[in-house]
Simulated scan of single mutants.
Amino acid sequence: MDPEVWSQFIRENWLVIVIALVLLFAVINLVKTVLKWAIVIVIVAGLFIYSGVTMEQIGDAVNKVTDSTVNTLKSEAQEMMLSEAKEAKYTSAGDGTYTITTPNLEVKGAAGNDKVEVIFRGVSLGQWSVTDTTKAFIDEARKNGAGS
């Protein structure tokens, strides 16, 4: 997915790209059915295949973006744990489970369990192992006053 490769491809195959674009616009303007979108997908896929981009490369790029986004969210959530620990509200259920809420975070866990579920701004970040940061957050929330 190197920009230099794309630039070189466009310089060498500009005529094929222009023809494909003309076909795309013609199909979009003339065909008014679901067939239109099937033809558009075939033309775009043909361009990708012709350019040498494989589905595996596209999948790898999507995975990289996903991993980067999740890692960024996890980092932000950890920073939020540190900054919002003072206002965290600890609520304990009778069965040993607890929920800690702040304006941006919700942490659910069970006493004695080394995993907690973290929800950051309404988006579940999955199960996290209890790290020093997480433990400090839980302890601070307990100090703030336990609910029922």
Rank of each mutant, 00 (worst) to 15 (best):
A45Q: 09
G59M: 09
T66I: 15
V62S: 07
N71D: 15
T69Y: 07
T72C: 06
K36F: 00
N29P: 00
L47Y: 06
V34R: 02
G46S: 06
N63R: 13
G52T: 01
I49S: 10
V31K: 00
Q78L: 15
Q78S: 15
A26P: 01
A61F: 09
I39H: 00
I28L: 10
L47A: 07
N71I: 10
V34T: 11
G59S: 14
N29V: 02
A38Y: 07
F48I: 14
K74H: 13
A61R: 08
L30Y: 09
L30N: 11
K32M: 01
W37I: 07
A38V: 14
Q57C: 03
G46P: 02
T69M: 12
I28H: 09
S51D: 08
L35K: 05
V70I: 15
V40N: 00
M55R: 08
V53N: 07
E56S: 08
V34M: 03
I49T: 13
Q78P: 05
V34C: 00
L73V: 11
L73Q: 09
A26H: 06
T54R: 02
E56M: 05
V31N: 01
I58S: 03
I28R: 14
T69H: 08
L35I: 14
E76A: 13
A38M: 09
K32N: 03
I39E: 00
K36N: 06
D60Q: 14
